[in-house]
Nucleic acid binder design. Structure first.
Length: 472
RNA sequence: GGCCUGGUGGCAGAGUGGUUAUGCAGAGGACUGCAAAUCCUUGGAUGCCGGUUCGAUUCCGACCCAGGCCUCCA
């Protein structure tokens, strides 16, 4: 099936053509591991995961690379300010290396909660210093660099004719020049490739290089690692929308002189998760992590479901109200699937119906990853009386592979919960209640039901008597 | 100042040049002693003003409003 995607480079919806038939290589700009990734960060990861799943279901062999930025780049793109990793280390009284490991572990934990398939490769910047140095050397030989004495090696963006193409703005249009720039840079958009360690303090992370002891600028890591694991040219590069102008423009500027243009065929940028009042903020306590949602009793799949109801190129406004709505919607679907699994099977999978639904669902997500439309089809499928339960179940297995919403898993767990037999004392209470009911003593019956409920079980009446179900 | 998105019912959010998805919430009903679950039915929206068109929510233009990026940020 044809895959269409919106390419930021051309600002157009394009049909995807791989560099090598049947294969796709793509790179996601991963997290800087100095703090917990919040649910907004994770939106990007879910989007990446959907891309991977759509390619996979279309028969592609996927090589997905996502980096961990564990080297301290600076808090300002002007290559000044504090080092984030060092700040994190000071905050937590850990070494920078331990800080990195701690937040990598946390990140992967949350990735798993969201059922994101792990990338094929997850390289760390600090493990690829030599590759980064090698690229800086190549750029130096090609004449793209200059030194600011006592500061570092910089990239001269005026040497790269097409600088800023991705951001839709020419060099001359960027406002950078309006700020005071006493750093010695030739152009406001120039950026560091290699920074010298300060002479007055000892950095925890620093390496030898042909230019002196120091550390790499933060853009070069993505160029170095993507090429190492995906080849000099690859198909797709994705990341948060804020990366387009600076980070990705710089990556292109670093890479194309070395490998030729176009370096990457397609670029995709994801919109942000916003709060009513704007961005998530750590200081305001609104930078929720996936683990925070779990602590509040939410299923991570409900959050994933919320995300998939919107489009990746559209900002999404998060609130607990909308998460509650998503939770209800998600649970309703799970309930219906559980009923399908419980339904008596009298027929076999209807391959004609299966194929029709399969193709319909796959085609809407293959068209620029419209997951919201796929979820509409999921509702339609549940209502479709012409498709038998077995076929529907098989289709939901496909939907789970495609969207990663773990419908079958949650439905199976729900059934298990419902089949778990109640302990004797609960059964005794239920029996008493049944007697009270038979005597039309509603007050006693309701009191007993409340007692059972308080013990963690629910009594459900039916035509044939009652069921005792463990509360989720 | 430059660039870029959007403005759709109570909420979240799709698609579409010609009956405005879907979900949640709401209302009514079936079933229930009452609940729960399920099923059925149902009310309710396209910022404002022009233009193109037989017809615009959809295309074009102006305006108003909101948000984002241009500074680390997914």
């Amino acid at each position: 099936m044809t895959i269409k995607l919106y390419n930021t480079l051309t600002r157009r919806l394009e049909e995807f053509t791989p560099l090598q038939p049947g294969k796709v290589g793509f790179y996601t700009c991963g997290p800087t591991v100095y703090w917990d990734a919040h649910i907004g960060n994770m939106r990007t990861m879910v989007n990446s995961d959907i891309i991977k799943r759509v390619f996979t279901e279309n028969g592609y062999e996927v090589n997905h690379v996502m980096n961990f930025t564990d080297v301290g780049h600076l808090t300002s793109d002007g290559d000044t300010g504090d080092d984030k990793m060092e700040k994190g280390a000071a905050r937590e009284n850990l070494s920078v290396w331990d800080v990195a490991q701690k937040y990598i572990d946390g990140f992967l934990y949350d990735m798993d909660l969201l059922n994101n398939i792990r990338p094929t490769h997850m390289p760390r910047a600090t493990d690829h210093i030599s590759e980064q140095i090698a690229q800086v050397q190549q750029l130096e030989e090609l004449g793209y660099t200059y030194e600011i004495p006592g500061d570092g090696i910089y990239y001269d963006t005026s040497k790269f004719a097409n600088y800023g193409a991705l951001g839709g703005q020419k060099l001359s249009e960027l406002r950078g020049g309006a700020r005071i720039d006493d750093s010695g840079k030739r152009n406001s958009t120039d950026f560091a490739l290699w920074k010298y360690s300060p002479t007055d303090t000892k950095r925890q992370m620093e390496w030898d290089s042909p230019w002196g002891v120091g550390f790499p600028g933060w853009h070069i890591e993505c160029s170095a690692m993507s090429m190492k694991y995906l080849g000099q040219h690859f198909d797709l590069h994705v990341g948060g929308q804020e990366h387009a102008k600076v980070h990705h423009s710089n990556e292109i500027a670093q890479s194309e002189p070395i490998v030729g243009a176009p370096w990457v065929s397609y670029w995709m940028h994801f919109e942000w998760l916003l709060l009513k009042d704007g961005k998530m903020s750590k200081s305001a306590g609104t930078a929720y992590t996936v683990r925070n949602l779990v602590e509040r009793g939410y299923d991570p799949m409900a959050y994933r479901y919320l995300l998939l109801q919107s489009h990746y190129r559209q900002p999404l406004e998060f609130s607990f109200e909308s998460l509650d709505a998503a939770t209800n919607g998600y649970k309703n679907i799970v309930r219906k699937i559980a009923d399908l699994i419980n339904a008596e099977k009298t027929t076999n999978v209807d391959s004609e119906r299966y194929n029709a639904w399969h193709d319909k669902i796959l085609s809407v997500v293959s068209d620029n990853f419209k997951t919201a439309e796929a979820l509409v089809l999921v509702q339609d499928l549940l209502k479709d009386s012409a498709t038998n339960p077995e076929t529907k179940i098989q289709l939901f297995e496909f939907v789970d592979r495609l969207l990663g919403l773990q419908f079958i898993d949650r439905a199976t767990k729900l059934i298990a919960l419902e089949r778990e037999s109640a302990p004797a004392e609960i059964v005794a209470l239920a029996e008493s209640r049944a007697t009270a009911k038979a005597n039309r003593d509603w007050a006693t019956a309701d009191a007993l039901r409340a007692e059972i409920d308080a013990a963690g079980w629910t009594v459900l009446d039916s035509k044939d008597g009652y069921k005792i179900v463990k509360k989720a």
